[in-house]
Design a protein around this nucleic acid. Structure first.
Length: 275
DNA sequence: TTGTGTTTTATTGCCTCC
DNA sequence: GGAGGCAATAAAACACAA
């Protein structure tokens, strides 16, 4: 049934046109004028010629419309429906089957294109976010080294009077850093209660899923640092997912060793993200 | 008009299911 | 082993710029 001879396929090609018998019958029945008779004869010759050459013939727009409607209902074709459709449209059942097959192939291609654009949009969004976080991370690292340098010089100045005091390590303890950030926050006039406000602002900007507000990139580094903490606090409440969520949880659970807090902002050791 | 790219119709070969 | 589906492909029909 799958394989068919050339006569069957040719028959399918000309199936939606009047047969030679039909043309002959009409001539006998209606007795055409000489001119019309000649035209019919030439048509007859053309018809035979096309049948012999086996040219493809496109389906009419009505036939295609009907097939499309049927495809929308169900893209697979049961034998009964195939025969019924073929009868309704004056086509061979095989033509209907082929049309459905090709139509499914076209649909699949389109679907792949749609899936691709969705995935690409997702990827672009994530990449944009990642770049933004990377920039922020860099700025924070720079600020941290500035603070460390400042602290070192202050320590050196006061070192003359308190030599017995334990030397300041190259990296501050996490408690000291925390105290310093708290001071910074109070200097900026912000309080803990502002954290939700930042989050809400951010979410109202349409960055609710992952994003930082990129407009913050040009703000002063102390502001960005404070914002970072505010965001961290807010996100621990908002149960952030993935990378950010992990950072917040680490902070909450005091998982930072002194060394870790030193390296935390290191751009060279950016966390690897498994997409 | 013609060359070229795209779409549509049909064929072939292979695979799976019953 | 027959029936039907799918991927790859051929070839005709069509669209369109030059």
């Amino acid at each position: 049934m799958k394989r068919f001879g050339s006569s069957e396929s040719l028959g399918a090609l000309v199936s939606n046109f009047p047969s030679k018998e039909e043309v002959k019958l009409a001539k006998d029945k209606y007795g055409y004028s000489k001119e019309f008779q000649a035209m019919l004869d030439s048509l007859e010759q053309e018809d035979i010629g096309e049948e012999m050459s086996g040219k493809k013939r496109r389906l009419s727009s009505e036939q295609v419309k009907a097939l499309e409607r049927s495809f929308e209902v169900e893209n697979k074709l049961e034998p009964e429906r195939k025969v019924k459709l073929a009868e309704e449209l004056g086509l061979q059942p095989r033509q209907v089957a082929i049309w459905f097959q090709n139509r499914r192939a076209r649909w699949k291609t389109k679907q792949l294109e749609r899936d691709y654009s969705v995935l690409k949009a997702d990827y672009d969004g994530l990449k944009h976010n990642f770049d933004s976080l990377e920039r922020q991370n860099k700025a924070l690292a720079e600020k941290l080294s500035q603070l460390k340098a400042k602290l070192f010089t202050e320590g050196a100045e006061s070192n003359g009077s308190a030599k017995e005091e334990s030397p300041i390590s190259t990296c501050k303890s996490s408690e000291n850093i925390e105290v310093e950030f708290k001071n910074l926050k109070t200097k900026d006039g912000s309080s803990d209660g502002d954290s939700n406000e930042v989050l809400m602002k951010e979410e109202s900007n349409g960055n609710s899923s992952l994003g930082y507000n990129n407009n913050n990139n040009n703000s002063s580094s102390s502001n960005s640092m404070v914002n970072w903490f505010q965001l961290s606090e807010s996100r621990s409440v908002a149960a952030g997912k993935g990378f950010q969520g992990q950072l917040v949880r680490m902070e909450e659970q005091s998982l930072f060793t002194t060394d870790e807090s030193c390296n935390f902002f290191s751009v060279d050791q950016a966390p690897s993200l498994h997409w």
